[in-house]
Design a binder for these strands. Structure first.
Lengths: 209, 209, 209, 209
DNA sequence: AATGAATGAGCGTTCATTCAT
DNA sequence: TATGAATGAACGCTCATTCAT
């Protein structure tokens, strides 16, 4: 995570024993579900505690403030997301062009899941008023974009760094924007496959310039 | 607008006199500010009333339910946005290609404003849990996309309707996605101009296919 | 009414012109309806004003305080009730025994109406915490009981005043109590006729003692 | 009780520990006092909390809804009442006639207490607009009447069920009606003893018919 | 007389947080 | 570690009342 100080806080600030670590993780995963099911407005500690089968006092023991839980939860989701991202890329060490297409395909498919469709817009809104959320958001997109830059450079070795940056920013923007139009339950969700093809063509054509 | 019954409710359900109408409008504009500054989570009636210099009872007189205020506010912003959109397009009745570029340029410039950068992500998040917000969101994007479809058809008369739809969905997605990357205060805000050029090239190249 | 100061306040404290008097009366009658339909808890000035087709400001002009309206309304209902009571008694100037039976019959029939079933219990509850309501309640029952005393004395000329009082108090209590058991919508409403016969027998038997 | 599910909810829906149970009960008893003193219209949670020396949040912990508190309170009072009723009846297992007289005597004495005088009229008014209160009211009177039916049957073994019902309904009505005339602070409170004798004679005479 | 506008207190309820055990 | 109990601030909303016109 941003400052490398994350790995030991994700599981709750107090979590010495193994049992404690497991419970903290259980709470985290329950929290994600509640967040996705109910949205931020109904994301209450009571609701999380109840869903996790834990007393509210105990939840508080692991995550002293609501913001602690929120941050741990966002990091948890983002980590899973980035890990999957990397995994897809390395799925088969074939031609960079194929790798790039595979990553883009994963991205666009993933944005069709209820989880991603609901989670990320909440994060974006959060980022507007919460510096920590904003930092996390920058972090995840820069990490994801890093993968794109790397692959794109292999596909088009002559591209300068600046163009590489701009093109990958544009790719990311298009992907994230598609969440709103072709995400789960959205108006154009049924054309997600066609949009995926179009996107591939679009970005295949561009940097040849 | 969705139900066609909007024009006389935007200014509050009460509001018979001129003074009343003005106050309702004042509340609406204050509400936008609060919504932008604090986000939906802290968008409370008390906060709006205080910011507007109005008693909470009086706010309630104009907008009996919080949802009334929220809806009126969203419609107010969206209307302004769409009106501006149309105005830009008709700015000069020149070649369709130039009109299309002008609309896209407006869009990408507008997304750099604090207002747009903050407002729309809140709307997207809201739409995840509020059917009315979802409807409003679909409405504004379909209206905006309608303009793109019209212009694009003039530029490329041979394009079939399906392709027209997909391309304009993609354009919209890219624009909105850019809000997250090149919006006000975002990481790539300083390259907004360059991204604008890139976008124009990107979509100029595509449908020629 | 109790202090003879009632006749000019019933129509609202301000009510100089004829039109004004009519409007005050209209409000009063509407208020009764609202009170009966909605119960005391939802008996709000807004509701009365709306039902009467009058602005809340105007309602306030006629009845400056809610308690003014409430009191005028209670007096209005009570007056109607007592007038009807007297009318029934004098219906036919026949034997006192028949008159007494007729009055009791009216009473027990009236308690089966929705109006009486709902109005009086509200008054009783009100009387527990409102001196004015308590006074009004004593007034109406003493006036009604006066009629009973008079008739009963004619039927049983030898009865002393004390017995007369006790018996008529008991009669009144039985009638009013029946509201709870055989009033409109109550469990024994369907046996109201049989209960009426039983009551007649009950009180016919008693004072012969 | 109505649904048979009452015995463990009367003390509040939370209340796991002994201290909790005691506090829930303390709140209940305070609630009765407030209800008696102020009437339903001023029976607010804040008033109860303050009178009980408890934070409003804590009151809410035990009784999540106002209706929960109201229902628990009504049941609490009614239960005490019915228990006392039964106890009086069984006081001495003598002749049924004496038992009946004792029950009636208790009833008429009890209606002279401030508690009963004020509580029941509120319940009656409540029952006009609250189905739950109406059900509770029917329940308590049917239970009480059941005792009368049983005793009266022993006194007059030849009476058919229908007559038994009508006579006991009339007895109940007279008793409850007396609350309004001879209850605590009422006009004829000082003649309660005389009225008691009269009632006894009245109903002793009746069914012999 | 009559209206629409405006106020402010109070309502039931929710909730993050704290605390004693 | 874990619980149930407890707090207090804030929320959306209702309402009697007042006021300028």
């Amino acid at each position: 995570m941003p400052h490398g100080a994350r790995d030991n806080t994700e599981n709750g600030e107090a979590a010495g024993t193994r049992k404690g670590r497991e419970r903290a993780r259980h709470i985290l995963e329950t929290a994600v579900e509640v967040f996705l099911d109910q949205g931020y407005a109904r994301f209450t500690l009571r609701a999380v505690a109840e869903a996790a089968g834990v007393s509210s006092g105990n939840l508080n023991y692991y995550y002293p403030r609501k913001s602690d839980l929120l941050q741990a939860m966002v990091e948890h989701v983002i980590d899973g997301y980035l890990a999957e991202f990397e995994r897809r890329r390395r799925g088969a060490p074939d031609a960079p062009q194929a790798q790039l297409e595979r990553v883009l395909a994963f991205w666009i498919d993933d944005l069709g899941t209820a989880r991603t469709t609901r989670f990320f817009p909440e994060l974006w809104a959060l980022a507007n008023h919460d510096r920590e959320a904003a930092r996390l958001m920058e972090y995840v997109y820069e990490r994801a974009r890093g993968v794109l830059v790397e692959l794109l450079r292999e596909v088009h070795p002559r591209l300068d760094r600046d163009t590489l940056d701009l093109v990958t920013v544009l790719m990311s923007a298009t992907m994230e924007g598609l969440t709103l139009f072709a995400g789960d339950g959205k108006l154009w969700a049924h054309r997600r496959a066609a949009l995926r093809e179009l996107v591939q063509r679009l970005f295949a054509a561009l940097p040849a310039d």
